[in-house]
Design a binder for these strands. Structure first.
Lengths: 343, 343
DNA sequence: CTGTTAGCGCTTTCAG
DNA sequence: CTGAAAGCGCTAACAG
């Protein structure tokens, strides 16, 4: 069934039973030590620990997961590794999970789709204790079935709307407002916004519009997207128009970089002729040659809280759905300045 | 032990036994269907499949892994999610694995380190069937113990040198040669190279030097790094010198972008005053506003082959160590042109 | 082709 | 505090 008896040395990995034998105790005692029980004398505990070390013992999580109610793993569904906006989120999440002795199992929805793998299904077969969805994914149907089986938390996205799934995101409306207010404070009046997709796109737009109206300015929204390409196209059209904007607030950093390219194409300097603000404060924004003013969405904090929620739900089903907003922060860099006329 | 009896509806997930009962067959027959055995009449198979669908049955991979010699998972150790050069590699790898019914389990070494998680150790406890190391990692010690237990393949890196671990990489020497030859063909003679770390750094340097010597030019190598920052610093010093180069071949795209910023700082235009070549052909190189000429390292092919190797080793231990080189391809974009004097 | 029987390595009662 | 015993869901012999 398992490893054939092997001629030379036994390739069989040491089990709890080997450890028990070596330490001169029973199987269950070893199990107790493993579980960190306090009902073990320190001598015995030492003996067990020593035996483990000598044998190079490694607990088999498969076996553990099979017999205990928790597998000790949490699935993390990443939407697209190409855009590493989620890295800090993942760090926050990992920190929370690690402290609880839980391992994140990462899967990349985009790649899996391409090769025809059913990411969520695979995770469920692995008996994950919960699922954290990082960023908007297209696996809506799969998530609906998943939530029937395991707790689900959405991090850095508000979609799909799953009854019973907690949501942890940055405060997009407030973040967008900060961005717009920054531009307004610099003296800009013709400030355009490249709207992005989905609920998040709507919220950022709303924050932008509110800030504009508060200052008696007319909102100027055009459809953008979340890619460099879409930002480029949208900005190109804007800048080719008769009364071009003096500032553009893009949906995210990628679209903002697209706008930057469009500006360069028209011979406009940034921020001399045109100011630009992105969103997400990715490492792209930090690249010297781009140096984008951007809204930081506090992703580390988002990850931390998502971890807390999923661990709570692991213990207690039937919690009400929760929404946690993390404050944003505007990071000013080289892509914003006063409008040209005000010079 | 497992799920408490639950008051309302039974939360217990259907097992192979439930399926057998419902389909009116034995447990083992269900197992055979699951395993895709041909020794099952099509009627019975249908019955089993139907029962599974009706029950919403999902095989428990933990249980499967516990009783069969393979767990059906392969660990994938990612070095740093921040630099998404490996995305296509992962796609190739996933394609191979998926075709074999094996699931990749992704872990991020960098994040894990930060939170104090022992990535490799965790994977081994999960009873992975093999480990693919993607990119250079700092977990050398852990890898050495890992290779005693499971097959290891290095993809996109040559380090650490592990006896018995296959290596799949692009042909760095040849790639660097292509980059240098491209610049030479454009008429450049003062071509500097920003050397990167490790074995790969040495190989790229060697390819560059060979191309230079073949054309009777003097190699000009300075220490760089693999980050934007290090590329910036190195290039800044180079460009401040008396006889500055007319072209720079950087270790990778990130360093190349650093060089781009340094050029901008000095008021040099690219490619008018200075030509730049990167390496990895990441999506950064493709960004319009950067538009870097770069060497594509064929990472999809690297991933495919790494998958093949690991699957082979899963079946057959004691294979000799292998090295597979994937051909590179220069992608010319806007950062290279003729040297200024030749205009 | 089918049903029975052992385990895989571990946790968890339940008596000592 | 400790040991024996049962069982998690599944696979893999083994006789029918």
């Amino acid at each position: 069934m398992n490893q054939p008896p092997a001629p030379g040395h036994p390739p069989r990995r040491p089990t709890i039973r080997d450890v028990a034998e070596r330490a001169g105790v029973s199987k269950s005692l070893v199990s107790l030590v493993l579980g960190g029980s306090s009902n073990v004398s320190s001598d015995r505990r030492r003996a067990v620990l020593d035996a483990m070390a000598e044998l190079g013992y490694r607990p088999n999580q498969l076996a553990r997961g099979l017999s205990s109610p928790h597998s000790g793993t949490i699935g993390v569904l990443l939407n697209d590794l190409r855009n590493p906006w989620f890295v800090e989120l993942l760090e926050g999440l990992s920190a929370t999970l690690h402290a609880a002795g839980v391992s994140p199992v990462l899967v990349d929805s985009y790649t899996d789709n391409r090769v025809g793998r059913r990411s969520v299904e695979t995770l469920l077969e692995q008996r994950i204790d919960g699922l954290v969805v990082v960023g908007t994914t297209s696996e809506e149907a799969a998530l609906e079935t998943a939530i029937a089986t395991v707790p689900v938390v959405l991090a850095g996205t508000r979609e799909p709307a799953l009854p019973g799934a907690d949501i942890v995101v940055d405060d997009d409306e407030s973040g967008a407002r900060q961005a717009a207010e920054h531009l307004i404070a610099l003296g800009h009046r013709r400030i355009a916004h490249l709207q992005g997709p989905g609920e998040i796109g709507r919220l950022r737009r709303a924050g932008y519009e509110a800030a504009m109206r508060d200052s008696g300015l007319d909102p100027w929204v055009v459809a953008g997207g979340m890619s460099e390409e879409s930002g480029y196209e949208a900005a190109r059209r804007l800048l080719a128009g008769p009364q071009r904007p003096t500032a553009i607030f893009a949906f995210n950093d990628l679209a903002c970089i697209g706008a930057l390219s469009a500006a360069a194409d028209q011979g406009l300097t940034v921020p001399g002729d045109l100011s630009l603000v992105g969103y997400d404060n990715t490492y792209l924004a930090r690249i010297r040659h781009l140096s984008l003013t951007s809204v930081d969405n506090g992703n580390f904090a988002v990850g931390l809280q998502a971890g807390r929620y999923i661990l709570e739900r692991r213990e207690t089903r039937d919690l009400p759905q929760r929404l946690h907003l993390v404050p944003t922060q505007l990071v000013v860099r080289g892509s914003t300045g006063h409008p040209p006329d005000s010079a």
